[in-house]
Simulated assay, not measured.
Amino acid sequence: MRSEVITVRTGSRPTVQDITAEAESFVSGQGDGLLHVFVPHATAGVAIIETGAGSDDDLLTALDSVLPTDNRWRHRHGSPGHGRDHVLPAFVAPYATLPVLGGRLALGTWQSICLVDTNGDNTTRQVRFSFLPG
């Protein structure tokens, strides 16, 4: 299995960051297999969604609705409402596995691989790509 870690700058505000190009570069020329994308953080996730047409902002709005940044959370260190960031991975898993055919990601027309980070306390994230040949 081939594996590599990349660093993604997410900034100090909630974000949905497209990492498809980095994933495509990682699997380029690798033949058939599976790409596993994993975010080794307790407050981030990986989503396969359409970007650029407002869906990324819609996802953040939906997460704010379901997981508001208010005072309800028992987990209280960090910025106000940070406890919700620790619940995020239950809604947006910290991993995704995708098919790779002929060294190319087998994504749908409008699908992108996105890092979802609502935690403004950490401005950079690690993402591990692992390729399992088939």
Rank of each mutant, 00 (worst) to 15 (best):
S55H: 00
V16I: 09
A93M: 12
T124C: 10
R74G: 05
I48D: 08
L60S: 12
V37S: 08
T109C: 06
I48S: 03
E4V: 00
V37H: 06
L63Q: 06
S28D: 13
R128M: 06
Q30M: 14
T118A: 03
S25Y: 00
V87G: 01
M1V: 03
V66D: 03
R104I: 02
C114E: 05
D64R: 02
V116W: 09
D32V: 04
C114F: 11
L105C: 11
G108Q: 01
D64T: 01
V16M: 00
R76D: 10
H75G: 14
T97S: 15
T69W: 00
D32E: 14
R72Q: 15
G108F: 03
W110L: 04
V92F: 02
S112N: 15
F131L: 10
T61F: 01
T124L: 09
V92D: 02
W110C: 10
R9T: 13
G54M: 04
V127H: 04
F26W: 07
T109A: 02
F129W: 06
D58R: 07
G11M: 04
H75Y: 02
V39P: 13
I48Y: 04
I48C: 10
W73V: 03
V66K: 01
R72H: 14
G29C: 04
T123C: 13
P89N: 11
A106D: 15
L88A: 06
R104W: 04
G11V: 13
L115Q: 08
H77W: 00
G52R: 06
F38Y: 12
L132D: 05
G81N: 08
L101I: 15
V39G: 12
V92P: 11
M1S: 14
S3F: 00
L67M: 03
P99T: 05
G31Y: 15
S25H: 07
P68T: 06
G120V: 01
G78P: 06
A96L: 11
R72S: 13
A53F: 00
G11L: 10
G134W: 09
V39W: 04
V66C: 09
G33V: 08
G52K: 01
R74I: 08
L35W: 03
T97P: 13
H36S: 15
V127N: 07
I6E: 07
T118P: 01
T123R: 12
A42W: 06
A53P: 00
L63P: 00
A47H: 10
P40R: 13
S112G: 05
H41E: 09
Q30F: 11
T43K: 01
T123Y: 12
G52N: 01
G45P: 10
Y95E: 14
S65G: 10
T109W: 00
T10W: 01
T15E: 14
F129C: 08
P94C: 15
V116E: 13
C114D: 05
G81F: 04
P40Q: 11
